[in-house]
Every structure is written in C-alpha cells, then in structure tokens.
Simulated scan of single mutants.
Amino acid sequence: MPDAEWLRWQPQLELCKMPLGEVLYESGASLHYVYFPTNAIVSLLYVLEDGSSAEIAVVGQEGVVGIAIFMGGGSTPNQAVVQSAGMGYRLHADAIKAEFERSIPVMHLMLRFTQALITQMSQTAVCNRHHSVDQQLCRWLLLSLDRLSGDELVMTHHLISNMLGVRREGVTEAARKLQESGLIRYARGRISVLDRPGLERRVCECYSVVKNEYDRLLPSRVAV
C-alpha cells in the first residue's frame, strides 16, 4: 500500500486477538469489519444444512477477510473461522468502503487480492473433485505454511477433515503416509513439517497454480 494511504489508515486500524476457532462472521450475516491477519490464518468455510463443512480458501498475512464489504454485497454465504490463532487488525466497514471509493491504489490492491482469492477458491473446488486426500492435505499444509512464520501447525485430524470436507479416517490415513515418508511429524494436535521440498514434490498442481497467482498479483511492492 502506498505510504500516504497507509498513514491515513493507521489511526483507524484496531489491533485484535484472533483465537483458534473464533468465528469472524457467519453465513448470510451483515459484515461490520474487514480483518487483516498478521500471524493468524482464517479459513473461509461453506457449511451445509447437516452441519458438515468444507474449506474454500485460507487467508493470512497476505490478505483481507470480508471482501463482500468493499465488493458491495455486504454479506456472503460462507463462514470465516480462525484456523491458526494469532493477531490481526480490523477496520470498520464504513472506513474500508470509503477508502475503496476514494483511493485508486487501494481499489486496485483490493481487487487484485480478490482475483487471487477467486483463483484459490476455484482451484480448491477442482482439487477436491479430482485429487487424492493426501494431495489435498499437502496442498492445505503448504498454503498454511505460506501464511505462517514457522513450520508447525496446531490442528487436529478432526478439524482438518472439516476443512477438507472428507472423513476423519481419510485424513488420518493421509497423515500417516506423509509421516511414514518423513515429510511431517504429527503428535498431540501439532503438525510439524520436516521436509517442505518433499511436500512440494508430492502435492498436486493446484498448489503451484494458486501460489503463482498470488505471487503475480500481490508482490511485496507493486506500482499502481
């Protein structure tokens, strides 16, 4: 973000804790804030009537949660839940809408992120339909690691199965295969990635499609 816009934003940003499992917004509810995770990860989930769910995207330090506000919808059919605890900032809906309409650089930045997010959602749908559970798990681990500073995630098999929309037994078997291959270590709800290059060799093409699009649209500094 250009320095002038950032200086104007700073007084309006509110630092907030983002504990594991916190629901930032529910399906169909009016959104009052956008959130900018700093070291937390937020899952965007679609929850069915029977209570089952599937993750459609993850957002971390690269992005913003609550795009429906500046895109004009005001609400969305998905749910946003903190997947990895941490901190973040939030900005009131009126403020982000005003900035989106006022500043061309802000509008371009938010639209580029939205395009990247749509790519992730689309590729997730393809991956869930055509690729194995262990490939999906590799994709999910790598996307999560890209949004964290370390190589460890706090996540149970039950929560991962809810994210991927598959049976818990399938996740357990996939995690066992990755552990036996020396790629990860799983114990007491913590997953440590031991061999990231190995995960990258094992993952399906979906991860690189998403990563390349984020790198293209959201480099660290972009002329707008």
Rank of each mutant, 00 (worst) to 15 (best):
S149H: 09
I56G: 01
R221S: 14
G74K: 04
A98G: 08
A40W: 01
Q136R: 14
K97H: 03
Q79K: 15
E205N: 02
N39Q: 07
S30E: 14
G73I: 10
A57H: 04
H92F: 10
G86Y: 03
G63F: 09
E62W: 14
W9M: 13
H158L: 14
R129G: 03
S43F: 14
N212Q: 08
S192K: 07
W9K: 05
F100Q: 01
I184T: 04
N78Q: 11
V224I: 06
A29I: 12
S208K: 04
L199H: 00
D3W: 09
N212V: 02
E200T: 02
E22T: 11
S144Q: 10
P37K: 02
R188P: 00
A187G: 00
R196K: 07
Q179K: 06
S43R: 15
W140T: 13
T114I: 02
I118Q: 08
L159G: 07
D94M: 12
V171R: 00
G60Q: 04
A93T: 11
T172H: 04
D215Y: 06
L183D: 00
V203G: 01
T156R: 09
Y33F: 15
L91Y: 11
V222R: 11
A223H: 09
C16K: 09
V23H: 10
E26Q: 15
A80L: 10
S144M: 06
V81N: 09
E200H: 02
A175K: 03
D134Y: 09
L164D: 04
L148R: 08
L217M: 04
V65W: 01
V47E: 15
D151W: 00
G88R: 03
T124V: 09
S161W: 06
R176F: 05
Y46R: 14
K211Y: 06
S43L: 14
N162L: 15
A93K: 15
E55I: 03
T156K: 07
H32V: 12
L159N: 13
Y186C: 04
R188A: 10
V58C: 07
I118T: 05
G66R: 02
P77N: 11
R90F: 12
Q115T: 12
V171H: 01
E99A: 13
M18S: 02
L117G: 03
L7Q: 12
A125N: 01
H92E: 15
L194Q: 07
L199I: 02
T38Q: 12
A187V: 10
M71D: 09
G66M: 05
Q136L: 13
E22K: 15
R8G: 05
G72E: 09
P197K: 01
V65Y: 04
E5F: 07
L159Y: 12
A54T: 11
L117C: 05
I184S: 00
L31K: 11
K97G: 08
S27F: 05
L48G: 12
S103Q: 01
V81I: 15
P19K: 03
W9T: 07
Q61S: 15
G150V: 03
L7T: 05
H157C: 10
A174W: 03
A187Y: 08
S75A: 15
F113E: 07
R216E: 10
L218T: 04
K211S: 08
L142R: 06
E101F: 07
L24H: 06
R112Q: 12
R147S: 10
Q120I: 02
G170R: 07
R202F: 11
E101V: 08
E169F: 11
K177Q: 14
L148N: 05
L148S: 10
T76R: 08
D3S: 12
S103Y: 08
W140C: 11
A125P: 00
E49N: 12
A116E: 03
V64M: 09
